[in-house]
């Protein structure tokens, strides 16, 4: 554990809190992509299958995995029941079949090992790297986003971005660490997908302006 990974995980927790807070206080999930949320649940379920099989890592790991799966399921529950009337499927139209298919192909072509668990882990890593696309696509369609929604997207993106210095740190100082090539490549790709958003967030939202596309 190093400072970058700790901040990354913290950022992930904060993103969950912001999203639930936004929905609860505004009694609405407008501007939030249901499709992205479904993809994140698929990501966590497939990645954390090892809760039931692999040797126990740490209380921290187990607790965080349960929090990520549970909060993701809860978000979907809220969006499909209480706040369903505030969701507009007409602007949430990204074709997620391609993301699911592409991630599966990548996982089948380059799994860390040829086992179901390792393929499902790789699938979840690739899928996570693109799971934000329906959300970003929705922001692009409407041309703007509520400030609180942009805080959510930023915190979620910062999680993987912070893992990049974490990997460099581990590579340099943690002799026991194995380099997870798939996670590193997918993490870099994910951060690249976010770069445009990060730029606008930094130049507009951080200066108190509304998130608006040029």
């Amino acid at each position: 554990m190093n400072i970058f990974r700790m901040l990354g995980d913290l950022s992930h927790l904060i993103s969950i809190f912001i999203l639930l807070h936004k929905m609860q206080t505004s009694k609405s999930c407008s501007g939030v992509s249901f499709k992205s949320q479904v993809l994140y649940l698929v990501v966590y379920v497939f990645r954390y299958l090892d809760l039931f099989t692999n040797p126990f890592m740490s209380y921290y790991n187990t607790l965080m995995k349960i929090v990520f799966i549970a909060s993701s399921a809860y978000t979907i529950y809220l969006m499909s029941t209480v706040f369903k009337p505030t969701h507009d499927p007409a602007i949430d139209t990204f074709k997620i079949e391609y993301l699911l298919g592409g991630s599966l192909v990548m996982a089948l072509l380059f799994p860390p090992k040829w086992t179901f668990m390792e393929i499902s882990w790789a699938f979840s890593i690739w899928l996570e790297s693109v799971a934000i696309l329906p959300q970003l696509f929705m922001v692009q369609r409407t041309g703007e986003a509520e400030t609180i929604t942009t805080h959510y997207i930023f915190a979620l993106g910062a999680y993987r971005a912070l893992y990049i210095p974490n990997w460099i740190w581990r590579y340099m100082f943690d002799k026991k660490a194995k380099l997870e090539t798939i996670a590193v490549v997918a993490g870099l790709a994910q951060t690249l997908l976010y770069s445009d958003f990060f730029y606008i967030y930094w130049t507009k939202v951080m200066k108190g302006k509304k998130f608006q596309l040029p």
Partner: peptide, 10 residues
Amino acid sequence: AATPEGHDEL
């Protein structure tokens, strides 16, 4: 103790 197999990040 043996290092557990698997992925130790989230």
